[in-house]
Structures are given as structure tokens and as C-alpha cells.
């Protein structure tokens, strides 16, 4: 059992607060990461968009051919799904390498540890925003008009970010201590990719539909994908994601409070 003191909880709350308040710094660092990656390349971050677009088209056509749906249905579906899937998995994977990558900063400058979590969130939000242009193009090409449920898309997106943030933070803490974890997480996410309805529709699983229904990522994705396709996420989607977020953060907060001061010793 993890034992935690009030003082640790208090310092953890302070760390979270300071991390959020210094959003200017984390945003700046996130942009630097992206600039650094594409320095001296002519297209720069547009490469992100291009490679995502090619991936989506390939997967969309493949999905239509394999699972027997129409192109006009599968391409936007795969695109919207993959937009969020790559956002979510990249955030968790980046989380897992976060404190190891930033160890030089952490051991030399006193700063809230959550600044680096914020950096990961910003960076992936920026990448997703680039990728989103592909979705806009595809939606226009297939005449997709989002319905009134589109109004729920933003709150849904905010909830998904919150939900994935705790996963990234847990991945970061555990990975700082046990160096096998990042690879393990990568593998788990790879398997989850096949188990989550991204290339196929849940109904296409027929009698095995429960595989999708019991997978939390199905609901996380559905919450932000459906409004983009003109549909509405189910109440179940909302409740599941809300539950994972609330309980996940409660547990993560205690966990973070307990080990926050130790992280630097593990690096």
C-alpha cells in the first residue's frame, strides 16, 4: 500500500499548480521541440500533415476493401479515428520517455515536474492541429456536415486531454524508475491499436463486439470521433471516459504526491 502524507499531497498540488501556471514556458518548449525536429527541412512541420494524410488514405482504402464498407464511409471514419488515436498514443509514449529525455533539465534547474508533462501535452496538441487539416480536407471532399452534436465536441476533446494526461504522468513516473516500462507501453499500445475500432466499425466484430465494448479506448476515441462524423457519442462513452478521468486522476495524484520528490533520484 502506498502511504502518503499531507505534506506530500500539498507539495504535489503546488507542483501541479505551478506547472499549469507556467504554461508559457511549456508551450515555448513544445514549439522548440517541433522547430528543432524540422530545422533545415524545407517543408518543416508540414511533413507531419503529409505523412499523416498518406497514412490515412492508405488505411481508409484498405479498410474499405478488407471490411466491405464504402470509401465515403471508411475514409473519414479512419481519418477522424486515427487523428485522435495518434494523439493519445503519442502522448502516452512521450510520457514514458519524458523524465529520461528531460533529465538534464530536471537535475540542473528547479522547476515543477508537471512543466514537462505540459510540454508533452502542448507538443502533441500542436501536432494534432497540423493533422487536423487533413480531416478538414477529407470532410469537405465527402460533404460531411457535422450535426448539432458538434457542440459537444470541444468539451469531449477537453475531457480526452484530461484523461490521457494522467496516463502520460503515470507512464512518466513509472518509466523513470523502471527502464523497461517505455518499451512495454509501446507494445501494449500496439496491441490496443488492433483491439480498438479504428480501421473497422464495432459492428463488424459481430459476436465479438464485447472486445470493443470493454476496451476503454473505444469510448475515448468515440467521444471525439463521432461528433466529427455527424453522429453523437453515446451516454456510455461519456460516462466511461468521465469515470476513467476522475478515478484515474485521483489515483495518479496520490501516486505523484508519494513519488514526486524521488523522481530526480531515479534519473
Amino acid at each position: 500500500m502506498v502511504s502518503v502524507t499531507w505534506r506530500q499531497l500539498d507539495s504535489a498540488a503546488g507542483d501541479l499548480r505551478d506547472g499549469i501556471l507556467s504554461w508559457r514556458l511549456s508551450q515555448f518548449l513544445a514549439w522548440q521541440d517541433i522547430k528543432q525536429r524540422y530545422r533545415r527541412s524545407t517543408l518543416g512541420p508540414i511533413w507531419l500533415t503529409l505523412s499523416f494524410g498518406i497514412q490515412i488514405l492508405t488505411m481508409g482504402f484498405l479498410s474499405a476493401a478488407l471490411f466491405g464498407s464504402t470509401i465515403s464511409k471508411s475514409v473519414p471514419y479512419v481519418c477522424a479515428g486515427m487523428l485522435f488515436w495518434s494523439l493519445i498514443t503519442q502522448m502516452i509514449n512521450d510520457g514514458a520517455t519524458l523524465y529520461v529525455v528531460s533529465s538534464r533539465y530536471i537535475t540542473q534547474i528547479k522547476s515543477p515536474l508537471t512543466v514537462f508533462l505540459m510540454q508533452v501535452i502542448w507538443r502533441n496538441a500542436i501536432v494534432a492541429a497540423h493533422n487536423a487539416t487533413i480531416y478538414v480536407l477529407i470532410a469537405m471532399a465527402f460533404f460531411i456536415v457535422p450535426g448539432p452534436s458538434f457542440l459537444l465536441w470541444l468539451p469531449g476533446l477537453a475531457l480526452v486531454f484530461l484523461c490521457v494526461s494522467w496516463m502520460a504522468l503515470v507512464a512518466a513516473i513509472v518509466s523513470a524508475r523502471y527502464r523497461d516500462i517505455p518499451v512495454m507501453i509501446q507494445n501494449i499500445l500496439m496491441i490496443l491499436f488492433w483491439l480498438t475500432p479504428l480501421m473497422y466499425f464495432p459492428e463488424q466484430l459481430h459476436q465479438h463486439r464485447f472486445i470493443a465494448d470493454y476496451n476503454p479506448f473505444t469510448h475515448i476515441i468515440a467521444l471525439v470521433r463521432e461528433p466529427l462524423l455527424g453522429g453523437t457519442p453515446s451516454l456510455t462513452d461519456w460516462l466511461v471516459v468521465l469515470g476513467i478521468t476522475v478515478f484515474g486522476w485521483a489515483g495518479t495524484f496520490v501516486f505523484f504526491a508519494r513519488f514526486r520528490a524521488r523522481i530526480v533520484y531515479w534519473l
Binding site: 530536471i106 537535475t107 540542473q108 534547474i109 528547479k110 520528490a261 530526480v264 533520484y265
Partner: peptide, 8 residues
């Protein structure tokens, strides 16, 4: 580093 608050 302890003075700087890096190591608690």
C-alpha cells in the same frame, strides 16, 4: 543541488 531545491 539540495540548496537549489533539486534534491529534496
Amino acid at each position: 543541488r539540495t540548496l537549489a531545491g533539486i534534491y529534496e
